[in-house]
Computed example of a mutant assay.
Amino acid sequence: MSEMAQDPTRAGSEPPDWAGEVMQLSQSEITALATKAARGAGLSWGEAEEAGWACGWLARAGLPAPAMLLRGLDAESSASPLRAGIRLMDHAGLPEGPCALPVTLQDVAEPLVLVPFLARVAERMGAPVDLDLGSHTICLTGREPVPDLSALRGICHRTGARATISVSQSSRAAAPGRFDGRIERGVWQSLDALALLTTVPASEVSRQRAGAQSSDND
């Protein structure tokens, strides 16, 4: 076995056993991959953990969560839905938060990535929240189960969207979502490449620290 293969600082994800161009991941696998990829893309560990949770939530809602996360992480000219969602969630219930006045975000990449965070906003506020995307309005109550949003798959590629968040005047019940853990090979490879950026570059010091520093012999 090569030195690189034995080096824990160079260890990456185990490649899935692909039967074709699409495979199925569990919710925990999606969450772990999304968390590491978000960290590799430059988010703090706290932000990355929120991104991983949101990706798992979106998969439970029946949406192509890994691909949505990747496009959200790739956003450069548009507003990041991850950071915007985290800020809204952190300010839920505060005077300057979304309960005071409607909040409008311009030029949002992959706006459906906002949805899990707004569900948490609704939960913390104790009131339903609307996400108005112009052609669609989504009501989030914050209650379990996660709603079925699979009918919105057609707008997942939308970029530069205008999103308005406000307290809802209704609490329309939605059918529970069905988990969708499918991931395309190219999406997995891109997310895994980002995840590998969280590993520590190999060095003589890191190799020494990776092994035992003392003898077990008395």
Rank of each mutant, 00 (worst) to 15 (best):
A79Q: 15
D180A: 00
L149S: 02
G181K: 00
P102C: 07
D192W: 01
D192C: 15
A37Y: 03
R143S: 14
A100C: 11
S44E: 07
D148Y: 14
A41W: 02
E14H: 11
R209Y: 07
R153Q: 04
F179P: 01
V187S: 04
A54P: 06
E49L: 13
C156P: 02
P147R: 03
S166R: 12
P116H: 15
D107H: 10
Q6C: 14
P64S: 07
G42K: 13
L88D: 12
E3C: 09
W53I: 06
T199D: 12
W18G: 03
R153C: 00
P15I: 05
A48F: 00
D132P: 10
H157F: 13
A65G: 11
E110Q: 08
M4D: 06
C156R: 03
E76I: 08
S2Y: 02
Q208I: 12
I183D: 10
A34L: 07
A173L: 15
T198C: 10
A202R: 04
G142A: 12
L105D: 00
G126E: 14
L33N: 01
R182P: 00
V200P: 04
E3M: 10
G72F: 02
R83S: 15
T137G: 07
L82C: 11
D180E: 10
A11R: 13
G85K: 05
V113T: 13
G93T: 13
P64Q: 08
W57R: 09
A54T: 01
C156H: 01
P102K: 10
I165Q: 10
A84T: 05
R158C: 11
A79C: 12
V205Y: 00
P145S: 10
E184Q: 15
G181T: 06
P98W: 04
L25S: 02
R172F: 11
A84E: 05
H157D: 09
C99S: 15
P16Q: 08
M68F: 08
T199Q: 15
L43C: 05
W53G: 04
E144R: 10
L140C: 15
D218C: 13
V121P: 00
A84F: 08
